[in-house]
């Protein structure tokens, strides 16, 4: 995607900053010590952020018997991917994965469409009592009825033990609506006006003008929404305690991390059809299973992160502008 004007300006400012700071070429002893300490600190902190993922990963692909005795610390040995295969063959994990993935896709898509439309409508001054509805929406960001009243509300609506509890309450997000509204207000009004004079309806203007032009902000809220959906586990813990087949992957992981005994049963339950697979499954001990599920849970985030970093960073800036 092409960089926007603002981003180009940002980049320019950044370059300018380093240019002016580079002028001083002579390094004193103090500078050298400072640099060494500075690089060392950031180096260590960065490693502390990335090493745990690496450690988990090499432990899931190394020989399970070596993992069990704790011999895999830095370098993987006896690489194999059987752990992942056995885990995906175990129905429970695959179910949880599908629940998480589907809620991420459906929930995010609905949230983005609704936020876009609502944000657009909120920019329309001529809407009947727009100000009242806008406040009605904004106020909800500052109070929260609390855990138990919310729970009882969902119980009353029949949303507990129901897949829809992942999707429906998260569709309308006032914060995102405000972000979209602010963004749309920055689009030149002439575009819309000329289309309106040509006889386009509001829906048509929204579809053909507003939607394409507000794609950057929509991408940003989509990314944040998707990460939120994928990472969410409190809703699963609260509302799905009685329906294991609808629990999210994060919830499953939480359960397994706190479980030590019956883990092997999962594997056997899943792959009992084949003797060989069953034998393989018994090789996996609790630790390997925990590590592998952690990896399965974190891989989607790590996989999309490099491509989305731009949007993530934009997201926090949007919040800042609002705040």
């Amino acid at each position: 995607m092409a960089k926007t004007k603002q981003e180009k300006l940002d980049l320019k400012a950044e370059k300018q900053y380093y240019k002016t700071h580079k002028k001083k070429q002579k390094l004193t002893v103090g500078d050298v010590i400072f640099n060494i300490l500075n690089y060392a600190f950031f180096g260590i902190f960065t490693i502390s952020c990335i090493f745990p993922f690496y450690y988990l990963f090499i432990n899931t692909i190394s020989d399970n018997s070596l993992v069990r005795i704790g011999a895999i610390n830095f370098i993987p040995k006896g690489i194999h991917f059987q752990n992942y295969l056995s885990l995906l063959n175990a129905g429970e994990i695959l179910d949880a994965f599908l629940v998480s993935a589907s809620r991420t896709v459906i929930g995010t898509a609905l949230m983005v469409v609704v936020s876009a439309l609502a944000g657009y409508l909120m920019t329309k001054q001529e809407m009947w009592h727009r100000k009242i509805w806008y406040r009605f929406l904004v106020i909800t960001m500052y109070f929260n009825a609390g855990l138990v009243p919310t729970y009882l509300n969902f119980l009353m609506l029949g949303l507990t033990e129901n897949y829809l509890v992942y999707i429906i309450p998260a569709i309308v997000q006032p914060y995102n609506i405000i972000l979209v509204k602010t963004y749309i207000e920055s689009i030149p009004a002439e575009l819309e006006e000329s289309a309106f004079i040509d006889g386009a309806s509001h829906m048509k203007i929204f579809r053909n003008i507003i939607w394409p032009l507000s794609k950057p902000i929509l991408a940003t809220i989509a990314i944040f929404g998707a990460v939120g959906h994928w990472n969410s586990f409190m809703d699963s813990i609260l509302y799905m305690s009685g329906t294991p087949e609808l629990q999210t992957l994060q919830h499953r992981l939480y359960i397994y991390l706190n479980q030590t005994t019956s883990l092997a049963n999962i594997m056997q339950g899943g792959v009992s059809s084949s003797q060989a697979a069953s034998a393989m499954a018994s090789v996996m001990d609790a630790k390997t299973i925990k590590y592998t599920i952690s990896m399965v849970t974190v891989i989607p985030i790590l996989a999309v992160y490099p491509f989305m970093q731009r949007y993530f960073e934009k997201g926090i800036m949007l919040g800042a502008v609002k705040g």
């Binding site: 380093y18 700071h21 580079k22 690089y39 950031f42 180096g43 902190f45 960065t46 952020c49 990335i50 745990p52 993922f53 450690y55 988990l56 432990n59 990460v227 994928w230 990472n231 969410s232 586990f233 994060q250 919830h251 992981l253 939480y254 991390l257 925990k290 590590y291 599920i293 952690s294 849970t297 974190v298 985030i301 790590l302 992160y305 490099p306 970093q309 993530f312 960073e313």
Partner: peptide, 30 residues
């Protein structure tokens, strides 16, 4: 001053923000 080092630091240190607390615990466990 080193551009690529700065980029790497920035990229990797923001990753933990995007994993859930369950995963943080999984890492703590590991």
């Amino acid at each position: 001053r080193c551009g690529w080092f700065r980029r790497i630091v920035q990229t990797f240190t923001t990753i933990p923000n995007f994993i859930s607390w369950v995963l943080v615990y999984a890492i703590a466990f590991a």
